[in-house]
Design a protein around this nucleic acid. Structure first.
Lengths: 154, 154
DNA sequence: TTATAATTGACATTATAATGTCAAATTTGG
DNA sequence: CCAAATTTGACATTATAATGTCAATTATAA
């Protein structure tokens, strides 16, 4: 009915869902003392990771999340003064999102909490296997992101 | 700051989140014609996977989801006559959840849609690598589920 | 048996996420 | 320069998920 690869991947998917939910919950617990959640942490991370300040819609695209939700999260972060908006020379309405001092401190604190936690979580695994996992995950991700775009050759 | 394993795992996590969300969305699209969603499909799967009919709370535990949400989903499935409740000889209130004929047909139809889809998704990957991924995922899952229970030896 | 704790479904409330629409602003193509 | 398409943030609505509480029921232990 299915290929051996399809079977193996099928077996994997449910555990993947479960792991995802466990990671989110663990992340929530980890950074709760900082007033963060997994979602907020991820948004801060996307802002840090970007080379230059971006408007909300771009950050949402980077995250693969939907625009309105990311907007809400960033507005929340703004209320708590973790991010600020800067004038965008290229767009009057779409302001650029940057971390405030407080935002930088909070993000750094989160990463400092993360280090021992992820070290412990990875204990017993080999870098080689983790890389294999990463490669497969990326491959699946890429395949799913190429939304069946059958590009018409002009 | 982090071990090499911790670093590698860190790199992995964000892609894992993204993949998860892509898989859920793809699943939603796949089974939408059947009136299902990823969440409903998963609940049906848990009912099928269990050896014997279970009350809602047990299914929720199997799924690692929260009880109230699973209850809501199962009530929805009940309204659409995909599941039915049976008297539980061991508990007056906690009825046993079973699939109706329609539920069985729908679940089977979902799996038939899934087969070619997952075959295609797994194309290009080796069973060996997929199994490695599964093993690592399971290991992480187990570690996160053992909620720091420092069992006291009596 | 009795009392104490744990489980379970129902209900209510809140939080988060997803979807759709709109007007302002920008970009694109001519 | 102009018109059409796209992007963007704001807003509203709905859907889904999470959290807390309660009474009924069952399980456990004394």
């Amino acid at each position: 009915m299915r290929t051996p690869e399809g079977d193996a991947l099928s077996d994997l998917v449910l555990d993947l869902f479960r792991l995802d939910s466990l990671l989110l919950t663990a992340g929530d617990r980890l950074v709760a003392p900082l007033g963060l959640t997994s979602a907020r942490w991820q948004v801060l991370g996307a802002i840090v990771a970007a080379e230059r300040p971006q408007p909300v819609a771009w950050i949402a695209r980077d995250l693969g999340g939907n625009r309105q939700n990311v907007q809400r999260i960033i507005n929340d972060l703004h209320k708590e003064e973790l991010v600020a908006f800067e004038v965008n020379p290229h767009h009057r309405r779409a302001q650029l999102v940057v971390l405030t001092r407080k935002g930088q401190r909070t993000f750094r604190a989160a990463m400092e909490l993360q280090a021992p936690w992820i070290d412990d979580l990875s204990d017993g695994l080999s870098v080689k296997d983790i890389r294999t996992v990463h490669r497969v995950i990326r491959s699946l991700r890429d395949k799913l992101e190429g939304n069946g775009e059958v590009e018409e050759s002009v």
